[in-house]
Protein backbone atom coordinates (compact mmCIF):
# COMPACT_ATOMS: atom_id res chain seq x y z
CA UNK A 1 0.00 0.00 0.00
CA UNK A 2 1.43 3.30 -0.98
CA UNK A 3 1.86 6.06 1.60
CA UNK A 4 -0.71 8.33 -0.05
CA UNK A 5 -3.28 5.54 -0.07
CA UNK A 6 -2.62 4.86 3.62
CA UNK A 7 -3.07 8.53 4.44
CA UNK A 8 -6.30 8.56 2.42
CA UNK A 9 -7.69 5.55 4.30
CA UNK A 10 -6.65 6.89 7.72
CA UNK A 11 -8.09 10.31 6.86
CA UNK A 12 -11.44 8.88 5.84
CA UNK A 13 -11.56 6.59 8.83
CA UNK A 14 -10.95 9.59 11.09
CA UNK A 15 -13.61 11.61 9.32
CA UNK A 16 -16.12 8.77 9.73
CA UNK A 17 -15.27 8.42 13.42
CA UNK A 18 -15.55 12.18 14.01
CA UNK A 19 -18.84 12.19 12.06
CA UNK A 20 -20.20 9.31 14.12
CA UNK A 21 -19.27 11.03 17.39
CA UNK A 22 -20.76 14.29 16.12
CA UNK A 23 -24.02 12.56 15.17
CA UNK A 24 -24.14 10.88 18.53
CA UNK A 25 -23.57 14.16 20.39
CA UNK A 26 -26.14 15.88 18.18
CA UNK A 27 -28.69 13.15 18.89
CA UNK A 28 -28.07 13.55 22.62
CA UNK A 29 -28.36 17.33 22.38
CA UNK A 30 -31.57 17.14 20.35
CA UNK A 31 -33.01 14.67 22.82
CA UNK A 32 -32.09 16.95 25.68
CA UNK A 33 -33.75 19.92 23.93
CA UNK A 34 -36.80 17.84 23.12
CA UNK A 35 -37.04 16.75 26.73
CA UNK A 36 -36.71 20.35 27.95
CA UNK A 37 -39.38 21.45 25.49
CA UNK A 38 -41.63 18.68 26.75
CA UNK A 39 -41.18 19.84 30.34
CA UNK A 40 -41.90 23.43 29.30
CA UNK A 41 -45.00 22.25 27.42
CA UNK A 42 -46.17 20.32 30.48
CA UNK A 43 -45.64 23.40 32.62
CA UNK A 44 -47.61 25.54 30.20
CA UNK A 45 -50.41 22.98 30.18
CA UNK A 46 -50.46 23.06 33.97
CA UNK A 47 -50.54 26.85 33.99
CA UNK A 48 -53.42 26.74 31.54
CA UNK A 49 -55.21 24.18 33.70
CA UNK A 50 -54.61 26.37 36.73
CA UNK A 51 -56.06 29.41 34.98
CA UNK A 52 -59.05 27.39 33.80
CA UNK A 53 -59.73 26.25 37.34
CA UNK A 54 -59.49 29.83 38.61
CA UNK A 55 -61.93 30.89 35.91
CA UNK A 56 -64.30 28.04 36.77
CA UNK A 57 -64.12 29.13 40.36
CA UNK A 58 -65.14 32.67 39.39
CA UNK A 59 -67.86 31.63 36.96
CA UNK A 60 -69.60 28.75 38.69
CA UNK A 61 -73.35 29.13 39.22
CA UNK A 62 -73.22 29.41 43.01
CA UNK A 63 -70.67 32.24 42.93
CA UNK A 64 -72.73 34.09 40.30
CA UNK A 65 -75.88 33.71 42.45
CA UNK A 66 -74.00 35.07 45.45
CA UNK A 67 -72.79 38.05 43.43
CA UNK A 68 -76.29 38.78 42.09
CA UNK A 69 -77.67 38.66 45.63
CA UNK A 70 -75.01 41.07 46.88
CA UNK A 71 -75.52 43.60 44.08
CA UNK A 72 -77.99 46.36 44.97
CA UNK A 73 -81.32 46.12 43.18
CA UNK A 74 -81.35 48.87 40.51
CA UNK A 75 -85.12 49.23 40.93
CA UNK A 76 -84.73 50.40 44.53
Amino acid sequence: MSRSRLIFVVFHLTIVLIGAVHLRVSASRVFYRWRRAQVVQDNLKLQLGDKQLKLEHLLNPSVISERIEKEPDPGK
Binding site: L53, E56, H57, N60, P61, S62
Partner: peptide
Protein backbone atom coordinates in the same frame (compact mmCIF):
# COMPACT_ATOMS: atom_id res chain seq x y z
CA UNK B 1 -57.49 18.04 43.54
CA UNK B 2 -59.68 21.10 43.07
CA UNK B 3 -63.43 21.37 43.30
CA UNK B 4 -64.29 24.81 41.90
CA UNK B 5 -67.97 24.50 42.79
CA UNK B 6 -67.10 23.64 46.38
CA UNK B 7 -70.25 23.10 48.48
CA UNK B 8 -72.58 23.17 45.50
Amino acid sequence: RYTPMERL
